[in-house]
């Protein structure tokens, strides 16, 4: 029973940790030009979060800036779109633990590649 409870608590913690990791990415983008002290503090926050995440076996889903075929199971669009895009550009990577996706990657639609 204790094991089961501990496991349940960890599952909750994983979700929160994964969310915090993605939130730290958002924050990094917003305060990038606010001076070295803020950047330094943010770097430390990201480092600790990253470390905690790795120690819990969390890894990133997709890479920021990468282009991928839209998969609703892996990606969430930053802005609501009436039409499902074919391809997306990853803005904020998601977070996975083993085979379980804890946070989907945030993405924006990109125009289909032109045929030459």
């Amino acid at each position: 029973m204790v094991e089961a409870l501990a496991q349940a608590a960890w599952a909750e913690a994983d979700a929160a940790l994964a969310r915090a990791l993605a939130d730290a990415d958002v924050l990094t983008r917003l305060v990038k030009k606010s001076g070295p002290a803020v950047e330094g503090a943010l770097a430390m926050l990201r480092q600790s979060l990253g470390q905690a995440a790795r120690k819990r076996g969390l890894t990133r889903l997709e890479e920021a800036g990468a282009r991928a075929a839209f998969d609703p199971n892996r990606h969430v669009l930053i802005k609501i779109s009436s039409k499902q895009p074919k391809d997306v550009r990853i803005v904020i990577p998601g977070v996975v633990r083993g085979e379980t996706i804890l946070v989907k990657a945030e993405a924006t639609p990109v125009s289909p590649r032109r045929k030459r």
């Binding site: 496991q7 790795r54 120690k55 076996g57 633990r97 083993g98 085979e99 379980t100």
Partner: peptide, 12 residues
């Protein structure tokens, strides 16, 4: 070590 049986707990 990533097998589903470990629920992600062994790999780290």
């Amino acid at each position: 070590a990533h097998a589903a049986e470990f629920a992600g707990n062994l790999a780290p």
